[in-house]
Design a protein around this nucleic acid. Structure first.
Lengths: 334, 334
DNA sequence: TTCTAAGATGTAAGCGGTTACATTATAGGA
DNA sequence: TCCTATAATGTAACCGCTTACATCTTAGAA
């Protein structure tokens, strides 16, 4: 079933059928209804590829996320999909696994499908340059999870530096003098690096020494968090508090502490980052940094939608707030 | 940049350019290289919509998942995307949130995009009938997370009944006589119902009474799990063991038990379902049913790929194994 | 009644590819 | 040298829809 067949059955031209879908107000109601009925009866299904080709634009949004099952990225992806759905966009998405080859392949795919917009989680290949390239191809872009104010690029993120600074500051203000850090691969990922720097600066500003021997960088996963914490606890002068720059690391760490026979927060304080759902159900419930995961997703789609629908062409930059959620895993230094 | 322009620049016909991409062996190497070079230089990007239209088929897979951020569905989605990527398919996905309206809309979208195949998580609208309809439109379908052997439909699932039976049996074999159940909305979701039935049958077969007053059905979430457990603990004759048919429920439950001042597993045993990553990092680590989340995703894509590439037309049905992972949340009845 | 402008519909030229079929080049064999 | 099979390339008719523009109605206004 194609439009032309519907047109024949309805005794109208194909243009009228097309208009019935896209600008129904231009079709006489009775004709419109007849066409719609025939479509229904004949089980007609619009061919989006043909439409897109003819119209020279699509309603496809490409979404690039490192891993949808870890961290809170899942929340963001869901929010993106829901919002996109609401605005009648399709999303085509892929997980990069932090691998540039995969990322390139996915981006290529998005371009081949002539995505109208692309959501990128942070910067990776090419950076600004690359995004400019996409925009020249008339693809709207927005970066999420990162604050990029120095650049002239759409973003919807939060201040990773400030959030990490705040988390560390919280520990300092509880009297901790020796604060460890367990952090993701900060040399590879911009936003993680900023967290690292936020930690460092918080120490410095409070006159505490930065000791690389209690700063551990690993994959941001449960097991790695546990192992890193074990290592920290073996330090001749172990920290009385640890900032884990991801809740997965923190939760892994909690287990290591318990296994060692120590208590949180009496013996050691832990603060995480992300505010995963599970973090409130840990033992003890985790003090952590809440991140606007859903909000970023929704807003990012809105930004793209505006840009695609011919917004004013201005760059949109949103730096959303994070919150330090204080629960039971942090307390005064022993 | 389009093919015809590349053709002109290369001094060949457009057909030759097209062949350079799809059947390079039919093009003289020197010509091929020249064309490829020009594409590179001109920054040519293939137009998938045009290609799909012309070829009358796509490389798009539609993926329908209830919620990608809960349960282990996230793992499945990622596995699907990775495998699809590997086979050069694009995935377009959506979360139904168990809402039939959304589901319909997404399926419509998949059809409009002429998805070559669709992955459905369990049955919902229309059931078998509906899937048959899709297949008549030449869309390959596969249902995951469910065992559907009585039907003539592709599926890659596991035996929810048997898995739940096994979990309950484990508790019975530890001497528990009064075993509660916290379960998702089993009236709405087929696979959840089967878990409910597995629990029930395990009780019956061991001569234990089925007591509806310690069977609670809620949304499968942390908070709901906690609340349900609180309710169970208030029972005049509280259970000594609880089977929570989802790890989220179980983990929520764990918190309720601790708050009540009881110990797991000394006072009460808990077994979950899903084997979320976090379940191994709970306190105590959760005994649970491991579900082949990734495997299902990968296999489902393979099934679709085969069907699309003109497999032998036979229905493919895979019932994968689950494992009862015994950790520290279960013990002999007190 | 005639004219006009707005409203409804139709016509046809694309959109950027694919591919069956036709044509041309190339190399061996007779 | 001529013939023929095969390899390489070109031609052109689609794929199913959109949309600018042309045409036809119709309802007042004059």
């Amino acid at each position: 079933m194609k439009m032309s067949q519907i047109a024949k059955l309805a005794g109208v031209s194909i243009a009228t059928v097309s208009r019935t879908f896209h600008s129904p107000e231009k079709v006489r109601p009775e004709v419109r209804d007849r066409i719609l009925q025939i479509c229904e009866k004949q089980n007609y299904i619009y061919n989006a590829a043909a439409g897109d080709l003819s119209r020279r634009r699509t309603d496809i949004l490409g979404v690039l996320i490192p891993t949808a099952n870890k961290s809170v990225f899942g929340e963001t992806v869901m929010a993106i999909q829901e919002k996109a759905q609401e605005l009648n966009f399709s999303t085509i998405s892929g997980n990069t696994l932090y691998d540039k080859t995969i990322e390139k392949k996915l981006l290529q795919q998005f371009q081949e499908r002539r995505a109208a917009g692309i959501i990128l989680t942070g910067f990776t290949i090419g950076g600004e340059q690359f995004i400019r390239g996409l925009m020249e191809q008339n693809i709207a872009c927005v970066v999420i999870w990162e604050k990029l104010e120095e650049l002239d690029i759409n973003y919807v993120g939060f201040d990773n530096f400030k959030a990490a600074y705040g988390a560390t500051h919280h520990l300092v203000s509880l009297g901790h003098q020796r604060i460890g850090l367990i952090v993701g691969p900060y040399e590879k990922v911009g936003r993680v690096k900023k967290r690292f720097e936020g930690y460092k600066q918080a120490l410095e500003e409070h006159g505490l020494p930065f000791d690389p021997s209690i700063v551990l960088s690993t994959e941001p996963d449960l097991l790695e968090g546990k192992q890193a914490m074990q290592q920290l606890l073996c330090d001749p002068n172990p920290p009385t508090a640890v900032f884990a720059a991801s809740d997965r690391l923190a939760i892994g760490g909690l287990v290591a502490i318990k296994e060692k026979g120590l208590r949180v927060p009496q013996d050691i304080s832990v603060v995480g980052f992300d505010d995963l759902e599970f973090s409130a159900y840990c033992d003890p419930p985790l003090t952590t940094v809440r991140v606007p995961a859903k909000e970023m997703g929704i807003l990012a789609v809105k930004v793209l939608h505006d840009a695609i629908m011919g917004g004013n062409g201005k760059v949109k930059q949103y730096c959303l707030d994070t919150d330090l959620i204080i629960r039971a895993s942090t307390a005064e230094a022993p």
